[in-house]
Design a protein around this nucleic acid. Structure first.
Ligand code: FES
Ligand code: FES
Lengths: 172, 172
DNA sequence: TTATCGTGGATAGATTTTATCTGCAATAGG
DNA sequence: CCTATTGCAGATAAAATCTATCCACGATAA
């Protein structure tokens, strides 16, 4: 059981974007530089977030990414599912049917208890992720983060964010 | 986020082994046949279960596998961790340090809030898995499973289990 | 017009998963 | 003792996935 490392990048980027003011945007290249990531590859993940309506993108010079809705309405589950896909981690191959004894399909109408137990555990995982909002992450960071790191992050955002015309296309 | 398909095989095999009587054993080849799996590959997973002290193995003819302890004392978490490894699914690469601004390591003594949130969710996942015992799986199957499937499973176990000498080496 | 930025596809290398095979040690049964 | 069966460790390879890069394209601000 392993999560791609894109999850860490995606959440950190979303948290950074939560700090940009108003409808300003931040280029993907700046986000990649902010975390020492490969720009080309990070764009893939940012793109998935955009497709999931978690981020909005603005093309053209002075364009970039911004949150598609308020940080209070974005959960870690949203981000994880957007990057890792919505399918459950446990995939039942119905191996109970593959034995030497061939039974009619009607014998397997009830879902396998093992599958049910695994999916129930995964539901608990997702529920825990859904409880944490992006705004919580930002608030915790602002409250407990090291002042030096905090100042550096603020300066970085200030330096790279690009104001946009008051053009609320899909605004909250 | 994906679990290897060995997890499904391992849990099903453990559930089957929970039905063998006393200290009898069942060969790995029979377990593989029971679920239509590759014998060579299934042995890898059974071996991990043995290394984790969830199963016991008996070499020699009439040998095989059996549970190392009562099914009531084996949880799904035990099996999943044995097969998939004990490391958390979310692996923090400390990308917060990789930005353009180089800060002293003392700025990162506190763990990243994102990492903490992800690990907390994973703890909930593991807790849910730890709540389900192998005996629960067997009991549910016996209560709700299709009678035909139930009979076939019993017959299969009856046919392949091999009694062992009363030699309780690592018995409960 | 130009330079910047996001999008999508193609591509390739690295890593992990899945699967098979072989030789070896253990041991029950003859 | 001999043989057949079984688990175990390691090498190996095929397949799938993850990671990373590149380029052509459309959009757009200046
Ligand atoms: S058949 Fe897939 S979990 Fe039981
Ligand atoms: S640095 Fe790894 S999760 Fe924040």
């Amino acid at each position: 059981m392993k999560l791609g490392e894109g999850v860490e990048a995606a959440i950190h980027c979303a948290a950074t974007l939560a700090s940009v003011e108003g409808n300003s945007t931040m280029p993907g290249a700046a986000l990649a530089e902010s975390f020492g990531l490969s720009p080309s590859y990070l764009l893939k993940h940012l793109n998935m977030l955009t497709a999931a309506r978690i981020l909005e993108s603005v093309p053209g010079p002075a364009g970039g990414y911004r949150l598609a809705r308020a940080a209070e309405r974005i959960t870690l589950l949203d981000i994880v599912l957007a990057v890792e896909g919505r399918e459950p981690a446990f995939r039942c191959g119905e191996i109970r049917r593959n034995g030497p004894v061939k039974l009619d399909a009607s014998a397997y109408v009830k879902p396998c208890g093992i599958n049910a137990a695994m999916l129930k555990a995964e539901a608990a995982y997702r529920a825990a992720l859904a409880e944490t909002k992006l705004s919580d992450i930002v608030a915790t960071y602002a409250a407990e983060g090291d002042p030096r790191s905090l100042a550096a992050s603020c300066a970085f955002v200030e330096r790279h964010q690009r104001p946009q015309k008051p053009n609320p296309t899909t605004k909250v």
